[in-house]
Amino acid sequence: MTGIKKFFYKVLLFGAIIIVSVWLLNIVFIAQTSPYEYLGGMLNDKHKMVSQIQSPKVLWVGGSSGSFGINSDTLQKHLGMPVFNLSFIAPLGTYFLLNDALKEVKKGDKVFVSTEYDIEKYSTPPVIYSAIDYYPAGAIYVARDTTTVDYIGHRVKHKLANIKKLFWNVFTKNEAAVAAVEDKTSVYFRSAFSAKGDIISHVNNTPKQVDFFLFPKAPIDYQEQIDDLNHFVAEVRKKGGEVYYVFPPLAESTYQYGKVAVESVEKQLKANLKCDILGSAKDFVRKDSSFFDSFYHLKPFARDLNTQKIIELYKEKQK
């Protein structure tokens, strides 16, 4: 075994140098991108902001259809309680979104949940691994849907991808770094939302072309997502809050194209969801011209109409 000790010492030393380098370069990358990182920054900022709101309050939970879909000021005026829009993006999955929101629920809170029709239970790897770089508290919602080997593999790959981006950032201008609410092009950047958590960066912007048919056509099995929702409802009730489910806004063309899929989700929700549901899926279908850059993302004027509809349905429910 000549040299085996020497070999292991050298491997350990070289390995340590590499690991420390990767770690340091990632710290540099995260520090460099953090001021304008959309998702990770939004997760941090929104949690910080919502923790300062006194309960009872209203929370809006779900994917980006909620970020673009409600006017929290209008909602607050009609409900008489402080409102915060804690919506993020659907690719995070119901498991992450709902568990992450749960820690902000307190006694007396009203929680409106709106999940997209094609949302998955678990998040898509690149999205989640990027998010937890900036929002480490979210890491506990990742490890459960994957094996340890996969988890480590994905995290390592992601850390390496960060080094790659850091390298190229030296040569290329990062447009997100100069994005602002006032400009007419930027939408997805860290400070893109209002003090109540609504996306406002697109208010002055020109709408983008929407592919209305990038939507499932076949029936969707929504049982896993419903299980997450029911778990969420039960936990909110334990904390002394109440939950309402609201269908996400959807473009007319998308609805017609994926009617079978939408109706399958609606049917499963109505049969199995253990909380009040406001209206029907059809109530939230809007003209194609109401959408900004996706068939879920409403333009500002349509967001107001959507909020009115929610208030109307909520009041009906209270009668």
Binding site: M1, T2, G3, I4, K6, F7
Partner: peptide
Amino acid sequence: HTFDYDRVT
């Protein structure tokens, strides 16, 4: 085959 440092590396 013994562990030979040069060969292994």
